[in-house]
Each structure stands twice: as C-alpha cells, then as structure tokens.
Design a protein around this nucleic acid. Structure first.
Lengths: 249, 249
DNA sequence: GCGACATAACTTGTATGCAAGGCATGTCGC
DNA sequence: GCGACATGCCTTGCATACAAGTTATGTCGC
C-alpha cells in the first residue's frame, strides 16, 4: 500500500503515519486510545506512547479529557512548514555534492513511480508520492537527521495539502519534479536548489488559505463525522478541472 | 542558570535537556526512572513519557532492562549532525530576507553574552552559549519548525562536543560568530551563509574522532561511574593550552 | 413543547502492580 | 584458590485500576 518502507520502530506509530500520508486519516480525524489499543491488541500504554511521539512531531494533538486528533494545521503553521522546507531543501541541494549514478538511478525509479501513479489516476498514491519525492532526494545523502527532518516536514505538508488544497494539479508538480530531477542528474545542484525553492513557492501560493477553519472539515470535526473514511469516497480520480495553476505538493 | 528560556511544555524534559546542554549531564550518564520519579515527585509514567520524547530526539537512548543513558554519539552520527546543520543553517541564511534592526539587536545581545561568558571564564555557560548562537539566528525568523530542528541539532552537537572535543577553543569560535553577526548586521545574508557553512566545517574538523569508544567516557560508562558529576570537576576554566586551531561549537 | 438540571457513559491523566530480564554477589563443588 | 552456578536485587516493559473531566442523554418542572 505504502509506496515506500518507513524506517520506524514502533508499528503503531508507523501505521498511523502511513494512514495519514496515504490520506486514510485526514486532519481532524479522531484517534481513540481504546479503539487503537483494541485494534493493535495492546494496552493503552503503548498507544499513548505512539501518540505522544506523533504529538511531538506535530502530526497529532490532544485536547485534555476530550481526545486525540490528527492535526488541523492553521494558516500560520502552513506558512512556517513551507518556509522551513524551503530552507532545508534549498540548503541541502546547494551544499550537496553532485549525485552519483546510484543516487540518480534511485531518483529515476521514483520518477517512474510518479508517472505510473499518474497513468493509473491513483490519487492517494500520487499525493503520497509527490511528497515522497522531496524526502527521497535527501535520502540519497544517507544523512539520517536530515532525512528525519524532511519526513516530519513532509508529513505535515500532506496535512496542509489535505486541508487547504481543494483542487490540486499533480501534473504541474510532476513537471516541476522532472525539472529538479534533470538538474540533479546533470550534476547542476545549484539549479536544482533554485528550482526546488521556486517549486515550493508555487505549491504554497496554490494553497487556498481563505478556506477558513469553520469550513466543512471543522464542521465534520465538531459533529464527530470525521471518522476514518469508508474508502470509496476518497478514491478520487484526476478530474479534468485540475487546471495548470495549482501544484500538488 | 540557563542562558535562555526553553519553550518546552514538560518540566521533566525541559530540566533534563537543560542539564545536558549545560554540561551537568554528559554522554553516557545514566538516567534512572525511579530516581527521576522521586526527584520530580511524580510516577514513573511521566518520567518515561519525557524520556521517550528525548529518545525520539536522539538525546537519550534506552538499553532494554538495563537503563536509560544520555546518548554517546559515534563518529558517524557526529558527521551526520554536522552535515545536517550545514544544510539547515546555510539554507536558512541563504534564503532569508535581511534582518531588521530588532533581530540584529537580539543577536547583538547574544554576542554580548558570549563576551561576558568569555571574560568570566565560565566554561559551562560558554559551551551552552556557543551552541545557542546558531539557534538564536534561526529564532529571529520566528519559524517554529525550523527553530525546533535547530534546537535538536544543537543539543546533539553539544553531546558531540562533550564527547570528541577534548581541548576546545572558544575564542576562535567566538570570532567566527562575530564575523557571521557582522555579515547579518550588514544585510549580507549570502556572506553570512557561506561563513556559517565554513564555520561548521572548521568546528567539525577540530573534532578528535580518533578518540575511540573505548576511551575514558565509555569506560566510566561501563564501570557505572558516570553519575552526575559532583560539580567542581566540570567547572573548568579557559586554560592557556587552548590554542587557536580548534573551535568551540 | 421546551429549557435546565442531574446523571450516566464516555474520554484522557496518572499511579501502581506485576512480569521479565540483566547483573552482581555469594556459595557450592572441586 | 578458583570457576561455575544459583540467587536476589536491580532495571525497564507493560497492563491495569482508578481518578478527573467532558459530553451526551434523559428527565423533570413548567
């Protein structure tokens, strides 16, 4: 299901994070300690451990005596996450040595995955892959702290995009990714860094931050209708109304 | 005691992190759940929560049924942390807008703190401040995700420096900081970024990675002699043998 | 019918109890 | 004297019990 193995220890944390990055858990979704404990056949202690870790990563939050919820990033948080990604991704590419053939091939494999997901019109897989692209670039360095940072920021980016990106355009983003990949493959890291920075600007400017917190999502949240979707209603296809302006992650 | 307020929720986590950044807890120090629970007058549950969070930040680690320990970063981890800092700090400065007078003044206040600590020959405070400099630069942006990243990386850097930096030179580092500050104050962020990157290179190359894991620290660790220092033995002064080549964080 | 209040059924927060395993000490066999 | 083994104390791992608080429900008064 997941396009890539998550190198994480705790299976609960890993499963929850996978569900979020794959769009099965959306911002505002409620996470019951008891239900998770039953689902994973462990005690609440272990569930709380995993939720606490995710909380420190700003992926979930807890309201005292009320419950755990998948984070609903506000506009300020969205801006900060994008700014952080600009710094990290630009800094990484601008200071990195040109990639070797092994690393370029790994990225090329990812580009093929993106193309396949586009061809299959697999919306969930595509969202996940579009975010993964940036993680995979950093992964080629083998720098674990940096990879971790990128994973966290990407997970939060997915929440942001689920929250604010009403109509996205995966194709435009994919083309940006292709350009970044080409620069990396050509060994031109400076260009890759600049392209990456501009790409993030474009994605961010495509966000509809006017979608206020009193919109459908929060209403569903308030009405407790925000359980895990039954599946079919999130399996959207790449409809024709995705025009060329907005970008998908 | 701490040169700066840590914006952290949990007092246990905050206290432990402060003790580490101020050098009262060194790599290999043992952290007993029971003792911490008694010290903070809470149950082991809360202590384990805090330790788990610090574990996910790579500040402490647990050996099953043996105990919790302040992380002893190995050479590979040290290299990765420095490389990550290079990317993040370079990327931040290279993509940041020039600082306003408010931000420059805040940094100037920090520089004064560094000078005062040097004059007072306060080694512990100085180590803390030298790491804090880089955090404070990013703090001026108000970007919380990035600040968090820098705080984590800086905490790990302090562990690295306690582990590998046998004889440090705070003065050389301070001069580097002065140069970076001057560039920022002049609005030349590009130069500041380059200086910051070079500074990290210099600090890293000053590490004595040949101090193998079978050295004094690990021996003390093995022999369980690695309790919290009694105080006096870590209150070193800036001795004259700190020559101009190595740099303090 | 409708509003206010009591109550019951949830939620998380925290402490505690017990299980499982590591490590040092002491003891027994030789 | 010395080595192997057993024992007991220590550690963390985990589940559970209970406390505290929030929300929904039902009921009573009007």
């Amino acid at each position: 299901m997941s396009p890539r193995k998550l190198t994480m220890q705790d299976p609960i944390e890993k499963t929850l994070l996978a569900a979020i990055t794959e769009g099965r858990l959306t911002p505002g979704s409620r996470l019951s300690e008891n239900e998770l404990a039953k689902a994973f056949a462990v005690s609440r202690t272990k569930v709380r451990e995993a939720l606490t870790r995710l909380q420190s990563r700003h992926v979930v939050s807890v309201q005292p005596r009320r419950g755990w919820f998948v984070n609903i990033p506000d506009a300020a948080e969205a801006a900060e996450v994008f700014a952080a990604r600009r710094s990290v991704e630009y800094g990484f590419l601008a200071t990195a040595a040109p990639f070797g053939s092994t690393e370029v091939n790994a990225l090329a494999a990812h580009m093929a995955e993106e193309r396949r997901a586009i061809a299959q019109e697999d919306r969930a897989m595509l969202t996940c892959l579009m975010g993964d692209f940036h993680v995979r670039i950093v992964e080629q360095s083998g720098n674990r702290p940096l990879i971790e940072v990128m994973r966290n920021l990407t997970a939060r980016t997915i929440l942001i995009s689920l929250r604010y990106q009403s109509n996205r355009n995966a194709l435009a983003s994919h083309e940006d990714h292709c350009a970044i990949f080409d620069a990396i493959a050509a060994g031109d890291m400076t260009t890759a860094a600049a392209l990456s920075r501009d790409h993030l600007d474009d994605v961010e400017s495509g966000l509809r931050i006017d979608i206020g917190p009193s919109s459908l999502d929060t209403l569903r949240h308030t009405l407790r209708l925000d359980q895990v979707p039954t599946g079919a209603d999130r399996e959207g296809t790449l409809s024709n109304d995705t025009i060329l302006h907005d970008r998908d992650i």
